[in-house]
Design a binder for these strands. Structure first.
Length: 866
DNA sequence: GCGGTGCCACTTTGG
DNA sequence: TCCAAAGTGGCA
């Protein structure tokens, strides 16, 4: 064991008595001024320091290493000091714990050089490295697998029997090895044969064992990670607690089987083929007790070390729902700025892999995936009498499950390769995982007082509207009930008989007369009730979803969404709790309720996005791709008219241009509403909307809509050709793919039912365009995130992604530099050599800034600065 | 009678 | 018989 193998940060407890010799030296060096005290540094310097991010506690070092440290130590070799411990809690801060950093010359693998090297490796190199690692592991794994499948299934059975008969079963979970005397040495192969399903709790490891563990961690061929919750369940448990706090983290260290001769038992033995005997499973307790004690602080440093190592190590890391793992580490140990350390994390997530293969099953459990994809193991048959027992295998023993998880992930990886999804997985989806974790770890401030005022205001207005509605209806009824509303509109008032329109909207399944917005719009001149209902619904939606709903998710005056990477069939992201992608953009006007006399205006404007504000000294910067799907359609179809629209008039807004063309009005006269309508019409038409739908959308007769449809498709002829090509490809292959190879199987493309088949055809066309747009938006996120993470100065945080729009929170002085970076990166996605991507159309980005999300103004960019 | 659950209709967003 | 989401409330 050599010093070179350690991080260069070493922590000391200063409340230990007697004070260790090294600590005494450091203290005296600090007093004499030979040592810099980082407490006196400015905030900005502190942020950029890497010393705090990872360190080894002094107590972890073996005796001879302590001696080595003591010998090599002279004051000059210590460059920084960082106070640790509960200094925030104490009014009179006293140093109770120190971290010192050795100069790079003293220790070769100093933390700073490690960090630098991992940042300086370009993204593609990291991917190449990962690919190489994976390929190596895969080959190795396959080689080992050949001819031993039967043996493995036997082993599973053996383990199961052992497990169910052991006293541990009563415990429901894997027994933790608690050697209160402290385990002095990390177990070798002889010990571990019996420990296939035991967890080593790192709290109870002795100093030497800890050192050996770190070593084993660094030499592991692969790591498998899962979170353990307070109720004892893990990420692999079927019934995963929704909001259960994390108790600890379980890590399976997969060793290079055969790499050490000591670990190789005699040839031919059954146990010799059981690779599990060289693997170790550790449990890392991460819960903090409310009061501080030095032992816990030492443990905390050690844990932090392990976890940050895991996040930046070069070997494959397997984790089911890896995003939750990254976010948990950030919540536990992430300080301001430390998010950059996880930027390069690439964790193999089997759920993401399975979603790429079949995007239609959006939330499979670990157990589901095992049943669906793990070929060699227990196949769970619902009708089998062993079904319950089989399922128990997948839920009882954490260590066994971790090994199954590893196998499952390897199987999924080879499937990804077979489907041509491997590159998409590695270059797009996996790098996105830490980005989403970092987003979830960041909170957006919200104006709570304003929100509560608005809630009361809207509540009052709703009461008024309800009373008016009851009055004009001539009876009391539940205004939110569509059934009751339908009875009044068509049963009592018989408005459908007064309407001139022949085809009134109907509900899907019951085929009743609809009470939708389109219907109410067409009835609004026949009776006052429809208009009141429309206004009621608008106000009610804003209040219940965007004001009260948002308040429910607020903690300490801020909110943070949960981002779902595998929640859509098209590759888009989705957000929930709250769904920040669905928050009203357009302000609504409401007339002032009677009892609100505070203001003089008769109408009040409500805009939910205005409630989102940037933090102090920060600005929101929004960057959105303009007409991304239409541009992609132009590229894919090669339609000359559409291409011309983007290549020539790059300066103008395309939807405004289209509006002025077909409505025959000058472009200056095109209103916002006109533009929105054109947008809706264009997308409806290109994705195959019928004439009735179009008529309803435009508010014109079916005949007029038919004419428009013909004219449009005549002008942009190749759109139809493109759609035909996609549909026929889908017919022959059974699936379609996006620009970066994302796939969507559409089995109904050959359905007998005409309706189902037509739907699948429209979905195929839509997927190719929407999925490709999603690819580009994700690529933009990754490139920008990587650029910021590798920048020594930039600190901009990604706050939200609203499909084509990225919302950042930027430190005020950095806005111009960052804006230029964002524009350059996003527009340069027109061609990406490494992905063989080359669009025929330019990509255009609109930038806007402001201190409130609802009030963003186009950015005035300074040009000409080098 | 009460509370949980799943489905439907409607709304918002994005293209 | 445009596509893709999430949230709310009624209703059985």
């Amino acid at each position: 064991m050599k010093m070179e193998n350690y991080e260069a940060c070493i922590g000391f407890d200063l409340c230990e008595t007697p004070l260790s010799t090294v600590a005494q030296k450091i203290m005296s060096a600090m007093r004499s001024g030979d040592l810099m005290d980082s407490r006196n540094e400015g905030e900005s310097t502190k942020k950029s320091k890497v010393t705090k991010k990872s360190s080894v506690h002094y107590s972890v070092l073996a005796e001879h290493e302590k001696n080595q440290l003591l010998e090599t130590k002279n004051p000059e070799s210590l460059t920084t000091l960082t106070p640790r411990g509960p200094i925030e809690l104490s009014p009179q801060p006293s140093i109770t714990n120190l971290t010192c950093q050795l100069s790079a010359g003293q220790v070769q693998n100093s933390i700073s050089s490690l960090c630098l090297s991992s940042y300086l490796i370009p993204q593609c190199d990291q991917e190449a490295l990962l690919l190489q690692n994976m390929e190596h592991k895969r080959k190795h794994f396959l080689k080992e697998d050949i001819g031993k499948e039967d043996m493995d299934s036997l082993n599973f059975k053996r383990k199961y029997i052992t497990c169910s008969n052991s006293p541990e079963k009563a415990n429901k979970h894997t027994a933790l090895v608690k050697d209160t005397g402290g385990m002095e040495s990390w177990p070798n192969s002889e010990d571990t044969r019996a420990l296939g399903k035991k967890l080593y709790d790192v709290r109870y490891l002795g100093d030497l064992a800890k050192v050996q563990l770190m070593d084993a961690l660094k030499q592991a061929a692969a790591l498998v990670v899962t979170l353990m919750y307070k109720d004892g369940s893990t990420q692999l448990s079927t019934k995963q607690a929704l909001t259960c706090p994390v108790k600890g983290i379980v890590v399976l260290l997969k060793s290079h089987a055969g790499s050490s001769p000591v670990n190789l038992p005699a040839h031919g033995g059954a146990l010799g083929k059981d690779f599990t005997c060289t693997d170790h499973c550790i449990y890392i307790h991460t819960e903090h007790s409310p009061f501080w004690d030095p032992k816990q602080e030492a443990h905390s440093l050690f844990v932090r070390n392990i976890l940050f190592w895991t996040l930046r190590c070069k070997c494959p890391v397997v984790c089911f729902n890896a995003k939750d793992f990254v976010r948990t580490v950030l919540q536990l140990y992430g300080e301001d700025g430390s998010w950059k350390h996880v930027a390069g994390f690439v964790g193999l997530d089997p759920r993401v892999a399975a979603w790429l293969i079949d995007p239609s099953d959006t939330a499979p459990s670990f157990e589901d995936l095992v049943a669906k994809y793990l070929e060699k193991s227990i196949t769970v048959k619902p009708s089998s009498k062993f079904s319950d027992a089989s399922r128990n295998i997948v839920s009882q023993n954490v260590c066994v499950n971790m090994k199954i998880l590893y196998d499952l992930t390897m199987d999924l990886c080879s499937k990804l390769k077979a489907y041509g999804l491997w590159q998409l997985f590695c270059t797009l989806e996996l790098p996105l995982i830490p980005i989403l974790a970092v987003m979830e770890n960041h909170r957006i401030p919200v104006d709570k007082e304003e929100m509560e005022r608005t809630s009361a205001l809207l509540g009052a207005r709703l009461k008024e509207l309800e009373q008016e509605a009851h009055f004009v209806a001539g009876e009391q009824f539940l205004i939110t009930s569509n059934n009751q509303l339908r009875e009044i509109l068509f049963g009592k008032l018989k408005l459908h008989l007064l309407s001139q329109r022949k085809h009134l909207p109907r509900t899907g399944l019951q085929n009743q007369l609809s009470t939708s917005e389109a219907m109410l719009n067409s009835l609004q001149y026949l009776h006052p009730l429809p208009k009141l209902i429309l206004e009621y619904r608008q106000v009610h939606k804003i209040k219940s979803t965007f004001i009260d709903g948002l308040l429910a998710y607020m903690k300490k005056g801020s909110i943070s969404s949960t981002w779902n990477q595998t929640g859509t069939v098209t590759g888009r992201l989705s957000a929930k709790h709250p769904n920040i992608q669905g928050i009203s953009k357009h302000p609504i006007q409401i007339s002032k309720p009677q009892n609100f006399k505070a203001k003089e205006e008769e109408t009040i404007t409500i805009s939910p996005r205005t409630l989102f504000v940037s933090s102090k000294d920060h600005t929101f910067l929004a960057a959105d791709f303009s007409q991304i799907e239409l541009r992609i359609l132009a590229h894919l179809s090669g339609d000359p008219e559409l291409l011309k629209l983007f290549q020539e008039s790059e300066r103008d807004d395309v939807f405004s241009t289209l509006t002025s063309q077909w409505k025959d009005i000058p472009i200056e006269r095109v209103t916002h509403m006109d533009r929105e309508q054109t947008k809706k019409v264009v997308y409806s038409v290109v994705y195959g909307a019928g004439k009735e739908r179009l008529a309803a959308c435009l508010g014109v007769t079916v005949l007029e809509a038919t004419h428009f449809l013909e004219r449009f498709l005549q002008k942009y002829k190749k759109i139809k050709d493109f759609a035909q090509t996609v549909i026929s490809q889908c017919h022959s292959a059974g699936y379609v793919t996006s620009i970066l190879g994302r796939r969507r199987p559409l089995p109904r493309i050959c359905a007998q039912n005409q309706q189902l088949r037509a739907q699948a055809e429209r979905q195929a066309v839509n997927f190719v365009v929407q999925g490709s747009a999603a690819d580009l938006c994700k690529l933009a996120m990754i490139h920008i995130f990587t650029a910021v993470a590798t920048s020594p100065t930039l600190t901009a945080r990604l706050v939200a992604q609203i499909h084509d729009e990225l919302l950042f929170e930027v430190e005020d002085p950095q806005v111009p530099e960052f804006a230029a970076l964002v524009r350059r990166i996003m527009e340069s996605l027109q061609q990406v050599q490494t992905l063989e991507l080359q669009l025929q159309v330019p990509l255009k980005v609109n930038l806007s800034v402001g201190h409130s999300w609802g009030h963003l103004a186009p950015l005035q960019e300074t040009v000409g600065s080098a």
